[in-house]
Deep mutational scan, measured.
Amino acid sequence: NKFNKELQWATWEILNLPNLNEEQVKAFIDSLKDDPSQSANLLAEAKKLNDAQA
Rank of each mutant, 00 (worst) to 15 (best):
K47T: 07
P18W: 05
P36K: 03
Q8E: 15
K48T: 07
K33M: 15
D34T: 11
L17D: 01
K26D: 06
K5W: 05
E23W: 12
E23L: 13
I29T: 04
N41E: 09
D51R: 10
K33L: 15
D35Y: 07
T11F: 11
L17T: 01
N1P: 15
A44H: 11
S37A: 13
K33A: 12
N16A: 11
N41H: 13
W9M: 11
D51G: 08
I29Q: 03
E13M: 11
A40F: 13
D35M: 08
D35I: 05
N16M: 13
L43Y: 07
L20F: 01
N4P: 14
Q24M: 04
L32S: 01
A44Y: 14
K33R: 10
A54S: 12
F28T: 01
I29D: 00
E45I: 06
K5N: 15
S37D: 06
L49F: 04
K2Y: 07
N41T: 13
P36G: 03
N21F: 08
N21P: 02
N16S: 12
S37I: 05
L43G: 01
L42P: 01
E22N: 09
W9D: 12
N4D: 15
A10E: 03
T11V: 10
E13W: 08
K47Q: 08
K33T: 11
K5M: 02
W9S: 07
E23Y: 12
A52T: 12
L20Q: 00
E23M: 09
D30Q: 13
P18H: 09
K26P: 00
L43I: 11
D30S: 12
Q8L: 14
K47Y: 12
W12N: 15
L20G: 00
E22G: 07
L32R: 00
N50T: 01
D51A: 12
N19V: 01
T11I: 11
V25E: 02
Q38G: 07
K26E: 07
K48M: 13
Q53S: 05
A54L: 07
A52Q: 13
K48H: 08
I14H: 01
L43K: 03
S39V: 15
N21Y: 10
L49Q: 06
K48R: 12
L42A: 05
E22F: 11
F3R: 15
L32H: 00
F28Y: 05
N21L: 11
N41K: 13
Q8G: 04
W9F: 13
I14W: 01
A40H: 09
E45H: 05
D35N: 13
K5I: 04
S39N: 08
V25F: 03
I14F: 03
I14V: 04
Q38I: 06
K5V: 06
N19G: 06
N21D: 09
A52G: 05
A44N: 10
L15R: 06
L20D: 00
E45M: 12
N41R: 11
I14R: 00
W12I: 14
K5D: 15
N50D: 05
A10I: 12
N4F: 13
N19L: 07
A46R: 00
N50G: 02
N41V: 09
K33E: 10
A40G: 10
D34I: 10
K48E: 09
E13P: 03
N4A: 11
Q24L: 03
E23V: 13
K2A: 15
K47S: 06
Q53K: 06
N19A: 11
Q38E: 07
D34M: 13
S37R: 06
L7M: 11
D30R: 06
N41A: 13
D30H: 08
D51F: 11
F28D: 00
D30P: 00
A44K: 08
E13L: 12
L20Y: 00
A46V: 02
I14N: 01
A40W: 09
L15D: 05
E22M: 12
W9Y: 14
Q53Y: 07
S39L: 14
L20E: 00
A40L: 14
N4E: 15
L42M: 09
E23P: 08
K26Y: 07
K2F: 10
D35H: 08
A44T: 13
P36M: 07
E45W: 05
I29Y: 03
S31E: 08
L42G: 01
D51W: 11
K48L: 14
V25K: 15
E6R: 03
E22S: 10
L32I: 04
V25G: 02
K2V: 08
E22Q: 14
A46S: 02
T11N: 04
A54N: 10
W9L: 15
N41S: 11
L32D: 00
N41M: 12
D30A: 14
A40N: 07
L17I: 01
D35S: 06
D30T: 10
N19T: 04
L17K: 01
P18I: 13
D34E: 08
Q8M: 13
A44I: 07
K47M: 08
A46T: 00
L15N: 10
L15Q: 13
Q53L: 08
A54I: 09
N1F: 01
N21V: 06
W12G: 14
Q8T: 06
Q38A: 10
A27P: 02
L17P: 00
L49A: 05
E13T: 09
K33F: 15
N4S: 06
L7G: 03
F28L: 05
V25P: 00
P18G: 07
A46W: 02
K48D: 06
A40Q: 11
F3N: 15
A40S: 11
L42V: 14
N16R: 07
Q38W: 03
N50K: 01
Q24D: 03
N4H: 12
L17E: 01
P18M: 09
A44W: 09
S39G: 07
N16L: 07
A44M: 11
L42T: 12
N4Q: 14
A10T: 09
T11E: 05
A54E: 10
N50W: 01
L20V: 01
A10Y: 07
V25T: 09
A40R: 15
T11S: 06
I29E: 02
P18Y: 06
T11L: 14
P18V: 10
V25W: 03
E23K: 11
P36I: 13
A54F: 07
L43D: 00
Q53M: 10
N1I: 04
I14M: 04
L17H: 02
L49W: 04
F3D: 15
K2Q: 15
Q8F: 09
E45A: 12
Q8R: 07
I29F: 04
P36Q: 03
L17G: 00
A52Y: 13
A52E: 10
L49R: 03
A27S: 11
S31K: 12
S37P: 03
A54W: 07
N21Q: 07
A27G: 14
A46P: 00
P36E: 03
K48N: 08
Q24I: 03
A52N: 11
N16T: 08
A46Y: 03
K48Y: 07
Q38K: 10
I14Y: 02
N50Y: 01
N16G: 11
L42N: 02
W9K: 13
I29N: 02
N41Q: 11
P18R: 07
D30Y: 06
P36H: 03
A27E: 10
Q8W: 13
S31W: 11
L32E: 00
E45N: 09
N4Y: 14
L42K: 06
K47P: 00
A27V: 11
K48S: 12
S31Y: 10
W12E: 15
D30F: 06
